[in-house]
Amino acid sequence: MMAVSTVNILSIVLFFIFVSQGYSQCSLKDLSVSQSATGVKVQGKEEWSVTIINKCPCVQKNVLLDCKGFQSVERINPAVFKVSKNGCIVNNGEAVYRDAVKFKYAWDHQFPLNPISSDVFCSSI
């Protein structure tokens, strides 16, 4: 009976170790940035819809995208996406969860918006 109890406890401890290690593996690769043309023209420019999703179970803050040369004739809420000297800040630097962050911009072509940095925060189990 004691051996079964010890095995159960050991199994639970190992499970939590594996789960916590999985959480610490979160990185930029867990940030998905997708874009698609909406079919709408804004001041003669193609409108693009951008969706940013954090596929990591942890929160990512201070998400910065490479947006060299980014321009838009369509106003973008700066709390959602703002150009800075180091890149473009997503969600005003606040947490990006599993819920998508979305915005639209309008320009002649699609800009590559690749994640270049973030801070990963995992809650304790």
Rank of each mutant, 00 (worst) to 15 (best):
residue 88 C to L: 02
residue 114 N to L: 08
residue 32 S to P: 00
residue 81 F to V: 06
residue 67 C to L: 04
residue 91 N to I: 00
residue 102 K to Y: 01
residue 75 R to S: 07
residue 74 E to S: 08
residue 72 S to Q: 08
residue 26 C to K: 15
residue 53 I to Y: 00
residue 92 N to S: 15
residue 10 L to M: 09
residue 36 S to D: 13
residue 97 Y to G: 09
residue 123 S to K: 04
residue 73 V to D: 13
residue 78 P to R: 04
residue 52 I to N: 04
residue 60 Q to K: 08
residue 53 I to T: 15
residue 81 F to W: 06
residue 30 D to Q: 07
residue 37 A to E: 14
residue 51 T to H: 03
residue 9 I to H: 11
residue 16 F to T: 09
residue 108 D to S: 03
residue 91 N to V: 05
residue 107 W to M: 04
residue 58 C to Q: 10
residue 123 S to Y: 04
residue 20 S to K: 02
residue 77 N to I: 03
residue 75 R to M: 01
residue 105 Y to V: 09
residue 73 V to F: 10
residue 39 G to T: 06
residue 79 A to L: 04
residue 21 Q to D: 12
residue 43 Q to F: 10
residue 74 E to M: 06
residue 25 Q to I: 00
residue 123 S to F: 03
residue 70 F to P: 06
residue 89 I to H: 01
residue 46 E to V: 09
residue 4 V to L: 15
residue 88 C to G: 01
residue 15 F to W: 11
residue 15 F to N: 05
residue 76 I to F: 07
residue 107 W to E: 11
residue 87 G to S: 02
residue 105 Y to T: 12
residue 6 T to D: 14
residue 69 G to C: 05
residue 95 A to H: 06
residue 46 E to R: 12
residue 114 N to Y: 00
residue 120 V to G: 05
residue 83 V to L: 08
residue 65 L to S: 12
residue 77 N to Q: 11
residue 34 S to L: 01
residue 80 V to R: 03
residue 102 K to V: 14
residue 119 D to Y: 01
residue 55 K to P: 05
residue 119 D to S: 01
residue 123 S to E: 00
residue 71 Q to E: 15
residue 53 I to K: 13
residue 71 Q to C: 03
residue 122 C to G: 05
residue 55 K to A: 15
residue 5 S to C: 10
residue 61 K to S: 14
residue 63 V to W: 00
residue 2 M to F: 15
residue 12 I to V: 12
residue 6 T to Y: 11
residue 88 C to F: 04
residue 84 S to A: 07
residue 60 Q to Y: 01
residue 90 V to S: 07
residue 78 P to I: 04
residue 71 Q to G: 11
residue 62 N to E: 11
residue 24 S to F: 08
residue 112 P to N: 11
residue 47 E to G: 08
residue 59 V to M: 05
residue 106 A to R: 00
residue 75 R to G: 05
residue 90 V to Y: 04
residue 63 V to S: 06
residue 76 I to T: 12
residue 86 N to S: 14
residue 122 C to D: 06
residue 10 L to C: 14
residue 7 V to L: 15
residue 42 V to H: 13
residue 82 K to L: 12
residue 30 D to G: 10
residue 100 A to C: 03
residue 32 S to R: 10
residue 11 S to C: 09
residue 24 S to A: 14
residue 109 H to S: 09
residue 8 N to W: 05
residue 30 D to Y: 03
residue 1 M to C: 13
residue 50 V to M: 09
residue 69 G to S: 08
residue 82 K to G: 05
residue 17 I to S: 14
residue 17 I to P: 10
residue 57 P to N: 10
residue 70 F to L: 06
residue 121 F to I: 07
residue 78 P to D: 08
residue 13 V to Y: 12
residue 121 F to Q: 08
residue 84 S to N: 06
residue 125 I to C: 06
residue 24 S to Y: 09
residue 3 A to E: 14
residue 37 A to I: 02
residue 60 Q to T: 12
residue 81 F to N: 06
residue 89 I to R: 00
residue 104 K to E: 15
residue 46 E to K: 10
residue 1 M to I: 02
residue 108 D to C: 00
residue 97 Y to D: 08
residue 104 K to H: 13
residue 109 H to D: 05
residue 53 I to N: 13
residue 13 V to R: 07
residue 3 A to V: 01
residue 102 K to S: 10
residue 12 I to M: 14
residue 82 K to F: 13
residue 80 V to G: 01
residue 61 K to F: 00
